[in-house]
Design a protein around this nucleic acid. Structure first.
Length: 380
DNA sequence: ACTGATCGCCTGTAGGCTAA
DNA sequence: TTAGCCTACAGGCGATCAGT
């Protein structure tokens, strides 16, 4: 799993996540969003299933810390009933009822994600004046807790299902940031994953504009790395330098010529304005990379949409059935072409100038000529 | 077989000191 | 101020053992 596409909002708003209670909760929330993006990308049969054990393993989180009881769950804080009544109800009705208190670290994180929107400030102007505003966006719409008895009724296995917000899902398709999942996990170990996302975001956004330098505010970086504001400035700078050093070492392959440095601000005695630069990238390479990624996105999108159609026609979701259905051009041909065309139109920015209907027909003819699953995978 | 608890090792980090 | 070196300490992780 090399390339992971995530919603750019996550990178633009890394500092926003700091408002979510404690560090552990922030880690879980961010990991959930990454995990959702990851699942959305790879899982053809993805219904938004969250198995806590798999989640912990993939995201390298200690599973005990997920099930541990949160000292100050948001649901308890929010209730007008008071904590005592809330827990009494759970006691009476059982924890597998609507009276359940979502008070483990994981469930609290899910609760927070579902009830606590991110905000974005914006400004604009009209003919006769200016305005500023705040808008919110939420990332998941719905969370369900599923439970079933296992081990002859002795244990209860739980897992969750979630529904992503439409806008979030759309962003995963169109407005995304490319990251390296392994690198993300690696930086998470040192609590520098936020900065990793930020750097990726800056690089990918600015290189398109042919800009190869970006300045930060010193204070913002301190906040990002949880560096105490009481510390003497030179020590703060030293900490930042050790982090910079690590990043240049780790990312020299991905970002050619990556370098961090300091400049003097206006009238400052010492250099305290941090910046990052990288080698200017040839635009033709950028375009080629982008097209490759977008083509990949389109195909995944198409696969997902075709699967929906297959499900609606046959009311089952088995992989083999789907494959056979795909390869047989006699079945639902019109539907398949229509699906191709509608998926295409959602991605049309990339493919403008071509005729989707013709492309669709050619696509399915070539698909039908595949001999086995391996060939299908290579082509599609 | 599966789960939970504990222990100790290892790694990464903070912070002090010094030389340049 | 910066860079390098050193030490003390905390948190993460795997190994091991005990209980169901």
């Amino acid at each position: 799993m090399k390339n992971l596409r995530i919603d750019k909002n996550i990178a633009y708003n890394v500092l926003e996540f700091k408002k979510y209670q404690d560090r552990q909760t922030q880690i879980i929330i961010k990991s959930l969003l990454i995990y959702f993006s990851y699942s959305h990308q790879i899982d053809l049969f993805g219904y938004g299933v969250l198995d806590p054990h798999d989640f912990a393993k993939k995201m390298k989180i200690d599973k005990d810390s997920l099930f541990k009881k949160h000292p100050d769950p948001k649901q308890v804080k929010d209730t007008p009933l008071g904590a005592k009544k809330l827990y009494e109800r759970q006691e009476v009705e059982g924890c597998f009822s609507t009276a359940r208190v979502w008070d483990s670290y994981l469930e609290n994180a899910l609760y927070v994600l579902n009830t606590f929107p991110l905000y974005e400030n914006f400004k604009g102007s009209t003919l006769d004046g200016k305005y500023i505003g705040i808008k919110n966006f939420i990332l998941i719409r719905e969370v369900q807790l599923h439970f079933k008895k296992t081990n002859k009724g002795r244990n209860t296995k739980i897992f969750y299902k979630y529904k992503l917000d439409e806008a979030f899902e759309r962003n995963l398709r169109k407005f995304f940031l490319q990251t390296d999942f392994q690198k993300y996990l690696q930086f998470k170990k040192n609590n520098t994953e936020d900065f990793y996302l930020t750097v990726c975001n800056i690089y990918q956004t600015y290189r398109l504009k042919q800009i190869n330098k970006y300045y930060w505010k010193f204070e913002d970086l301190l906040l990002l790395f949880n560096i105490s504001s009481d510390l003497e400035a030179k020590y703060q700078k030293r900490k930042l330098n050790t982090i910079f050093k690590k990043f240049t070492g780790e990312l020299s392959v991905q970002i050619k010529g990556l370098q961090f440095g300091w400049e003097k601000g206006k009238g400052q005695r010492w250099a305290y304005v941090p910046f990052v630069t990288w080698d200017q990238v040839d635009m033709s390479i950028v375009k080629y990379d982008d097209n490759k990624v977008l083509d990949d996105v389109f195909k995944k999108d198409l696969r997902r949409n075709l699967l929906e159609v297959f499900f609606n026609q046959n009311n089952r979701r088995d992989a083999l059935g789907f494959l056979n259905w795909l390869l047989d051009n006699k079945v639902d041909h019109q539907l398949k072409v229509a699906t191709y065309v509608s998926t295409y139109s959602m991605n049309k920015k990339v493919y403008k100038g071509a005729k989707p209907g013709t492309m669709a027909k050619q696509f399915f003819i070539k698909l039908a000529s595949c001999q086995n699953e391996k060939e299908v995978r290579e082509y599609f």
